[in-house]
């Protein structure tokens, strides 16, 4: 698997933020949720999820806590920070503008 491009990387960040905005989640669950929510259209490269999570954590947008998972094992749960919530807002707007612009161009031709 090649390294994600910037667009994909940025998009993945947005998806992660969006998903854990609802509740704190561990990595595997985040991947599952993205797949479910996009009706299996978006298949997150499972491997690329973790570097993205660690990067967001070091940026201070999300924070991690060890907790007990649904199957009784120790798992690392990620939750949105205040900064992360603000970032989600900004990224969503940015995405909205970008996608509508692309849509306009694609449909016009």
């Amino acid at each position: 698997m090649s390294k994600p491009t910037d667009l994909v990387q940025g998009t993945l960040d947005l998806l992660i933020l969006k998903v854990i905005a609802l509740e704190p989640m561990h990595g595997w669950a985040i991947a599952q949720r993205i797949r479910q929510m996009s009706d299996s259209v978006l298949q997150v490269g499972q491997g690329s999820l973790y570097p993205a999570l660690h990067k967001l954590e070091s940026q201070g947008w999300i924070r991690a806590e060890w907790g007990e998972s649904e199957n009784g094992r120790r798992a690392k749960y990620y939750a949105l920070t205040r900064d992360g919530r603000r970032a989600l807002q900004a990224e969503s707007e940015q995405w909205g503008r970008l996608s509508s612009a692309i849509t306009r161009i694609v449909e016009a031709s």
Binding site: G47, S48, Y50, H54, E57
Partner: peptide, 15 residues
């Protein structure tokens, strides 16, 4: 599916 555990581990460390 994970795609190269060692490489991912490196990337996480780098971040």
């Amino acid at each position: 599916a994970f795609g190269g555990v060692d490489q991912r581990r490196e990337e996480c460390r780098d971040s």
